[in-house]
Design a binder for these strands. Structure first.
Length: 155
DNA sequence: GCCAACGTTGGC
DNA sequence: GCCAACGTTGGC
């Protein structure tokens, strides 16, 4: 199968690019939305690349690049009452939630802000992040969009 | 299965 | 803190 590209949101107060720099790799857990769960289950492959995006913060931006290093596996944080991602409806027999592990490729020297991305709304028209009402924490990025955005990093 | 009420996300 | 846009829940 071919390589996929993704954009994955995280609130920096909860898990930031600097946390990933420190850990190098980490589970991407806490997904509690079925559409996103289905993406993880059906489309994530080892070796896929993803933008790390800081959301719900002062300057929303793409702040790093990471690689997917596992396929989807059960997100046991849903079973842990002390976890902020605890899901009282989940049981070990019925655990619908999945996570993948990610590894840092690199932190961007200069974040690509949401404002910058909006300035390129013409070539990036179909980027889910720029669409109204977009709330999914993981969205696909086409190869064209991926390479266009990467070129912004270098400009 | 419909749909109103409620909850969540996330930019501003 | 506001609000738009969804997603989820639960009564019927």
């Amino acid at each position: 199968m071919e390589q996929h590209y993704w954009l994955m949101k995280s609130e920096p107060d909860v898990f930031s690019i600097d946390d990933l720099v420190r850990l190098n790799s980490a589970p991407w857990d806490g997904i509690r939305n079925y559409q996103v769960r289905n993406l993880l289950r059906d489309h994530f492959q080892i070796g896929d690349l993803a933008f790390f995006y800081h959301s719900s913060c002062k300057e929303p931006a793409i702040v790093g690049i990471m690689q997917i290093i596992t396929t989807a596996y059960p997100d046991s944080s849903a079973l842990d009452p002390s976890s902020p991602y605890f899901d009282p409806k989940s049981t070990s027999e019925k655990l619908p939630w999945l996570r993948v592990d990610v590894q840092l490729v690199h932190k961007l020297t200069r974040p690509i802000t949401l404002a910058t991305l909006r300035q390129h709304s013409e070539p990036l028209t179909d980027l889910p992040l720029l669409k109204r009402g977009n709330r999914l924490s993981i969205t696909p990025v086409t190869p064209e969009q991926w390479h266009y955005i990467l070129a912004l990093v270098e400009s």
